[in-house]
């Protein structure tokens, strides 16, 4: 009896700080945002209401749904290009590198940039791609171009390059983990049965590592979807993404209800993608068993 009470007190002591924190700083803020999304804008602030006008505006006003589409497009492209670069790299590490030490070092070499200042890495692309930047001055200096061009920066191209650069490591990690888990015996069996390497890859390695690809692409997609640094630095006038619109709604445009509605929509899109990818990965795992 006494032990039971002591245990219960200990449990409560462990549990209550994080639960309270999650309640105050996560649950209530999201709830407030959800409430705001039904409010009415009334200059300079807003007034309580219950109406769907903000959501309707997101669907009917071209300015908003176009940004949503553009953000989705860029996120998908970044996800794809990151996989095209990151997956072969992970494959190379798992199947082609014989030494464990070299493999660990190369893996580390990819992971380290992930944690190194995101802002600085994004900003460096601005200095590389700009019209007075390194790429241009190199092209002019080497005689390939007569004059600097401005086609590299402030468009969707520069945004996809910068974001792909940032999210490649996010693909390498899960792709590596899932490739490493594939039993070598399966690949050897396929080889022994006379199946070509490429076909072995298509019918064994690729399907079995697809959960890793899905996980990586989901991360790249979701993080790109909410990014506001890259668009602001290298995106230019046509490069605005959702996060930039959000920022302006809570700043200069001062339309908090609309911003809240857009936040909720973004939140729902991201959560849907995550749960879809979860289901996909789970069904992929079943195949393996």
């Amino acid at each position: 009896m006494k032990l039971q009470t002591r245990k219960r007190i200990a449990t409560l002591g462990v549990l209550s700080p994080p639960v309270l924190w999650a309640l105050i700083f996560l649950f209530i803020p999201y709830l407030i945002m959800f409430t705001y999304s039904f409010y009415l804008k009334k200059f300079p602030t807003f007034e309580p209401a219950f109406q769907f006008g903000n959501y309707a505006q997101l669907v009917t006003d071209a300015q908003y749904y176009q940004v949503l589409f553009r953000t989705a497009k860029i996120s998908i492209m970044v996800g794809l290009f990151s996989v095209l670069l990151g997956y072969p790299f992970a494959y190379f590490l798992v199947f082609k590198i014989k030494s464990d030490r070299v493999r660990a070092m190369l893996y580390m070499a990819v992971i380290v940039p992930l944690w190194v200042s995101y802002l600085l890495r994004a900003y460096t692309w601005k200095t590389i791609l700009g019209s007075e930047g390194i790429l241009n001055s190199f092209l002019v200096w080497s005689g390939i171009l007569d004059a600097p061009t401005d086609i590299f920066l402030y468009n969707q191209f520069s945004m996809v390059v910068t974001l792909t650069y940032i999210y490649v490591p996010f693909i390498v990690m899960p792709a590596y983990a899932s490739l490493e888990k594939i039993p070598r015996s399966l690949i050897e069996a396929s080889k022994d049965l006379g199946v070509r390497p490429l076909r072995t890859f298509w019918s064994i390695t690729l399907p079995l590592s697809s959960p890793g690809i899905a996980a990586g692409m989901t991360i790249a997609f979701c993080l790109t979807f909410g990014d506001f640094i890259a668009p602001a630095l290298v995106g230019g006038p046509n490069g605005f993404m959702i996060a930039n619109v959000l920022t302006s709604q809570f700043g200069a445009a001062l339309n908090w209800p609309l911003g809240a509605a857009l936040s909720i929509v973004t939140l729902l899109i991201v959560l849907t993608i995550i749960s879809l990818s979860d289901t996909l990965q789970r069904s992929g795992k079943l195949e393996l068993e």
Binding site: P18, V19, A22, I24, F25, L26, F27, I28, P29, Y30, I32, M33, Y36, C222, L223, F225, G226, D227, F228, I242, A243, L246, T247, F250, W256, G259, A260, S263, T266, L267, V270, L271, I274
Partner: peptide
Amino acid sequence: VFRRLILMPIALPGVITGISMLNL
């Protein structure tokens, strides 16, 4: 629910975490 809530900021755009706390 607790786990989902705590892990939310890793998946959600940082902007949304910032804005929702600003609201609070």
